[in-house]
Amino acid sequence: MSDPLLTVRGLKVHFPVYSKGWFPRQSGAVKAVDGLDLTVHRGEVLGLVGESGCGKSTTGRALLRLVPLTAGEVVFDGVDLAKLKGEELRRMRRRMQMIFQDPYASLNPRMTVGDIIAEPLGAHDLVPAGERQKKAQELMERCGLDPAFVRRYPHEFSGGQRQRIGIARALASDPDFIVCDEPISALDVSIQAQILNLLQSLARERNLSYVFIAHDLSAVRHISDRIAVMYLGRIVETGTYAEICDNPRHPYTQALVSAIPVPDPVIERRRKRIVLQGDVPSPLKPPSGCPFHTRCPAVRDQRCSTEAPRLRELDGRQVSCHFAEDIGDLTGRTAS
């Protein structure tokens, strides 16, 4: 697992904000991703969690260069995607795909399921035109759909089935790497596990690497080898799933983990929550210093509000907190 497939260094994605008028000028920028480092190994599932507005979806799109990058490099199998242009980039897309959150919005309503799934085959000329529908049917079967429905349209399927169509499409060009952007959060509870299991078995069977984006840490823990936690456009902590979920070190990760309800009333009654005050600051004007210092329950001194902490090694994981060694467990639990 030491072989990195994707390495991200100093990634920034800023969305310009324009003034109103006939010929608008840039007046500011939303710093959706602001200096992010990340590594994904071959065959690894990396969970990317954070709350709404933390930039996790933008990060996922930046990894595939679906949004313009402001700075930094995204090296995929030795090639810096940030430097690719037009046709070179388009060719590269065969090897990296995406699965979207909303199975209703991510399928063109005017195309048949067969045409949707076969589209990557045509875009990269992988299979002769006459054989594409057959290939689409094979993919449908693998993803748990009845191949007889190849001529149907997306609106004739349920949410879970549509997500399977989206997965089949992502698999069609036989990629190495897939960004899964909240692939289960729009689905019914009883369907979520079906899709999670499908994604997991596909990853094993085809040695796929995923970046699995979600706000639900429970689902991320289930599928990920490693987890990265984002806050305001930066990674605050990365580690193995067990390190992050069972023994978080960064105060934000601790608060996040403590806030996630567990379906067990006995455990729930005993748990201590770290209730964060206030809301996430606007990425248009992120706070100075540590981005979390405005809400941090363990905020110490001036250093927190003036100096931005770097992501650094701590007991085998990476944390970006000046005082990660000292703060301990904020819920008052003793480490087990």
Binding site: R90, M92, R94, F100, L107, P109, E119
Partner: peptide
């Protein structure tokens, strides 16, 4: 999202517009 999906797949720009 389906237009973004088409870009992610690598569909050529004129096909994205007209398909």
């Amino acid at each position: 999202e389906f237009v973004e999906a088409a870009r992610a797949i690598g569909v050529k720009p004129h096909l994205i517009l007209f398909r």
